[in-house]
Design a protein around this nucleic acid. Structure first.
Lengths: 187, 187
DNA sequence: TCCTTTGGTAGCGAGTCGAAACTTTTTAGA
DNA sequence: TCTAAAAAGTTTCGACTCGCTACCAAAGGA
């Protein structure tokens, strides 16, 4: 590996992407379904909507609506109307949905990662994260980073709800601070 | 980035894969079409068949057959029956197909890669290559590596055709040695 | 009040994709 | 040599994604 032209790395990323996508056709679910379940598992309460999911996946509203219908029919996702904004519906994983994530085909991929050396892993994670941010920024798409890395994230030093979102004016707990957020803007 | 758990890296890879796939819907072509054009551009003469492409993409024969028909109708790919083995058809890119590769959406990705430091690039290429080989091996799938990295690759020190394939008993030139091959087995 | 924006749905058409059945050609075995 | 199995591709079918357009209802301004 004496040379590493950019186009070669790009081709590797694309090829690996396809490989993972074809692995993801497990348990009768399609790749986009797995992505949806993972998103709902990791997103905070402000981001559990079809609109946020649409932005995350980079698809159109109609497509996402259909996928969610399919997942709801399968009993993996639940939709409830938001009482504050009655246009919106709040999404959540059902117990079945959460259970299914234990069989996430991504765990297979995770094992192949395990074969890398610790330093290679760190470097890989760094590079991929940088690349992803870069790529999303050039398309004016949200980063969906962790809450705690957001410019609106503040510490209040209170028990139970030690953090605070200055954008939504909402208290945050430890778990919130680790979730990914639709509104997140890197500090 | 103090921690880099395997599952996190796996999720990054999957997310980036989807991102690239949605970019790849350019020029009216679908992601799998671009992958096909790129494959035919990089494969050696022993690997320009639907069967090899099927193994490369990890899809079924039927699906690939349909994709190729679509590309042939668009005038990007040509099919000709192989005179030695009349079951087989030899694929090739048309002039239009080669020209279209100049607009490969992968070039966009390539630019985002460019933002990384040289050392990060090298590390990234290494890690991705290792990961890909690992992943393909566990599924008993071919590596599709470069001809010159194959255990059947030999040097003959003759002009014009300086190399030789000990598996297919065929002379190879410089260009052959750089192509990816269906039969390739890492040395 | 009117008008725009936002969140979501419904229907359409194109096309992937897997599965299975099928044709033709090649190869291996008795 | 005859025959059976394997290999290369094609075709058809059904399920589903995905973009697109049109649509509806709620929210927010001017």
């Amino acid at each position: 590996m004496k040379e590493a032209p950019d186009i070669h790395i790009a081709a590797l990323l694309e090829r690996i992407g396809r490989l993972l996508a074809s692995d993801a056709q497990a348990n009768g679910l399609l790749p986009v379904h797995w992505e949806t379940l993972r998103y709902l598992d990791r997103a905070n309460r402000f981001s559990m909507t079809a609109a946020a999911l649409t932005a995350y996946l980079g698809l159109t509203k109609g497509t996402v609506s259909q996928s969610l219908n399919s997942l709801e029919t399968k009993g993996l996702v639940r939709k409830r109307v938001d009482l504050r904004d009655r246009r919106s519906k709040r999404l959540s994983l059902t117990a079945e949905g959460k259970a299914l994530l234990k069989n996430d085909p991504l765990l297979l991929t995770s094992q192949a990662i395990n074969a890398l050396s610790p330093s290679a892993k760190d470097a890989l994670a760094d590079s991929l994260q940088t690349f992803l941010s870069q790529r999303l920024a050039t398309q004016d798409r949200q980063a969906f980073g962790q809450c705690r890395d957001c410019r609106y994230f503040a510490r209040r030093h209170e028990k139970g709800k030690p953090f605070f979102c200055q954008l939504l004016q909402e208290p945050l707990n430890e778990s919130d601070s680790l979730s990914i957020c639709y509104e997140q803007q890197p500090a």
